[in-house]
Design a protein around this nucleic acid. Structure first.
Lengths: 197, 197
DNA sequence: AGTGAAAATCTCTCAGT
DNA sequence: ACTGAGAGATTTTCACT
């Protein structure tokens, strides 16, 4: 799978701000022809970078229910099914997974009866504990962050993903793709320090 | 401002699943002509129901930074400026406001140095306290929930918005547009109870 | 608010580089 | 991967209901 170039990111940004913008419009900005833009967008869709063309809707005006943030603690074995159950629930709009395997869901509960909705939704699911926070607002600021690109592991040179770690060593910040690369780098660094002192 | 009808909701649903769908396509499904659909969409945009046509992007593939959930506690006086500062920050994608005036932000921190990013971002802002949770996943499930419609205040008949409250009185759940309607309804209810006992 | 038809614009296809 | 041009589809405009 070929990597993204700056033109792809520019196209993504333009479509983020207006997904109905004509290809010809984009083509002019990124200095290509309309079919070339169309091809790139098709490729971005195939790669799964673009999941879909959609709307940013102000649901508060649709009066769809009481907005809540639901924090769910669940045993690791049951994590996947619970996550899927929640994502399938009509009321759930966002689901965040924490590093400690907790689930955070933003939902709009129809009818305002949060306890009833919860027992309906999580009924057959073995949830250890949950907590509900009432929300008064939710906002979304889509942006691609055009200046931000892939990070490179200081030890092995691979691309740093969400699994990666950052560490400040000798006053400088280094990126690593995994903790073992971090350890290797630190050992190497300490050896260098000793040798030059 | 005219209320939404079922055709509007149908158009919203169709555009949520594919925002580039031709008007003619939608027109056929909702039994209108293309210009009529175009007019309705324009009206939905003017009303602010449709904020924008956009993309659902799989940001995990863009390797854009370390995903975190930031919980910020801030004095009521400083709430608005802090909220705006955070929303303006490139890294912040979502901001949820709790009923207790806490802020919850989903952000992807570039470079992975979360403490540095925080001190940069919230530098001149008087934040009482904050907490950072590392996330490993974030998902979005766009859907309109076609069966869900506006709620009506049991006291005054107005539409219940996010500001509204729900209350279980005498075993039944009632919706109110505001606390004062709730109080009026309860008093009326109690008087009826006394009269019939 | 919606229709119908014409004009303008956009997208798709495909042969060629 | 991209271009350029032509065919086909879509959107916009506008007079009318």
């Amino acid at each position: 799978m070929r990597d993204l170039d700056e033109t792809d990111l520019e196209i993504l940004e333009l479509l983020m701000s207006d997904a109905r913008r004509p290809w010809s419009d984009i083509a002019e900005i990124v200095d290509l022809t309309p079919p070339a833009v169309s091809d790139r967008v098709a490729r971005l869709q195939e790669m799964g970078i673009i999941r879909r063309f959609t709307l940013d809707v102000d649901r508060s005006q649709l009066r769809e229910g009481v907005p809540v943030l639901l924090t769910v603690t669940v045993h690791a074995d049951r994590f996947e099914p619970v996550r899927e159950t929640l994502l399938d629930a009509e009321a759930v709009e966002y689901a965040f997974t924490t590093a400690e395997n907790d689930l955070l869901c933003y939902a709009r509960v129809p009818g305002g009866d949060v306890p009833a909705w919860l027992s309906e939704t999580l009924n057959k699911e073995s949830v250890d504990d949950y907590d509900v926070t009432l929300l008064t607002g939710a906002e979304w600021t889509p942006s691609i962050g055009g200046t931000e690109f892939a990070l490179t592991c200081a030890e092995c040179g691979n691309t740093v993903t969400s699994e990666g770690v950052a560490s400040r060593i000798g006053g400088d910040l280094y990126q690593f793709c995994c903790p073992s690369c971090e350890t290797s780098f630190e050992e190497q660094y300490d050896r260098l320090e000793e040798a030059t002192s």
